[in-house]
Nucleic acid binder design. Structure first.
Lengths: 150, 150
DNA sequence: CTCCCCCCTGGAGCGCGCTCCAGGGCAAAC
DNA sequence: GTTTGCCCTGGAGCGCGCTCCAGGGGGGAG
């Protein structure tokens, strides 16, 4: 999982003709291939603009949208759900529906955070177990070393 | 990702002959197939005991070990890393090495938690945006709706 | 004895999310 | 003019972590 945004790039830094796909990829911390993949999969609000040569050009609105996608992906939303959300956002006047999707996702993320924290606590117990030297003092790797989560 | 442990099952509840793979799977919240897969992949401290008929039998030590695996998987440690850790734990007298693996994993989990929290904050900003009705008041799905993370 | 259920093995299959490749184009730099 | 570098498309390939299947067996209930 690449880190979020390499260069925050305020809108005014975007040249008039937009960014190439390579530049956009660098900005939002994704690969060129991934950007094209997302477009194919319908995760972009609109297909990217094209230069006369046929090359994609990215503008502030595209980068903003992509930042949202990165955020949803980064919290584990599957591609198909992001596609569904994108389709909702393409239609107007359904703010309640968008809100519902986001709130539901928020719940899942909270649960996931919670579970990770519980597992982390168990790992830390185990670490303590080794730090205090209890691990060195007990023979089997097995009966003694485990069950830090109890 | 299935939840952790369905029945905590204290050691004294385990019948003398051990649990079948189906029972063990239920206890640790994994599927029977996954348990066999983990064994094949070398994630078990020792291969499971077998009944005379050839069926696997699980005892407290196995369930303890598996609880540890669930915890590592549940915090995103890849199978191959768990295998490496398992191999370390099969040898004796390398508590420092085990500790190092666990501490490194802890660091990664903390980073991951942090990133998730940042993304979550962005999602919550966006939720607020819709809750306050700002979403309904601005025309495009695009320029207005996004960039909650700024 | 017959059912039925769970177990066994080896191996194939799958869903996900990319990632890479072949074959080709445009255009700025040398 | 040619080299370089990034871009294009369609489609194949891949690593991961399971999950399922065929074909077969044991063993307790009725």
């Amino acid at each position: 999982m690449a880190s979020v945004v390499h260069r925050p790039m305020p809108d005014e830094e975007i040249p008039n003709g937009g960014l190439t796909i390579g530049e956009a990829a660098a900005v939002c911390g994704l690969s060129v291939d991934t950007l094209r993949y997302y477009e194919r999969e319908g995760l972009t609000a609109l297909p990217a603009d094209r230069a006369p040569s046929g090359q994609r050009r990215y503008f502030a609105r595209d980068l903003n949208w992509l930042a949202g996608i990165v955020m949803l992906r980064g919290t584990g939303m599957p591609i198909r759900d992001i596609r569904a959300y994108t389709e909702i956002c393409r239609r107007e006047g359904n703010e309640a529906e968008r809100l519902a999707v986001l709130e539901q996702h928020r719940e899942r993320v909270l649960e996931q955070l919670d579970e990770t924290r519980r597992h982390l606590a168990a790992i830390e117990k185990k670490i303590d177990f080794y730090r205090t030297g209890a691990g060195a003092r007990s023979p089997e790797p097995y009966t003694s070393e485990q069950r830090a989560d109890r």
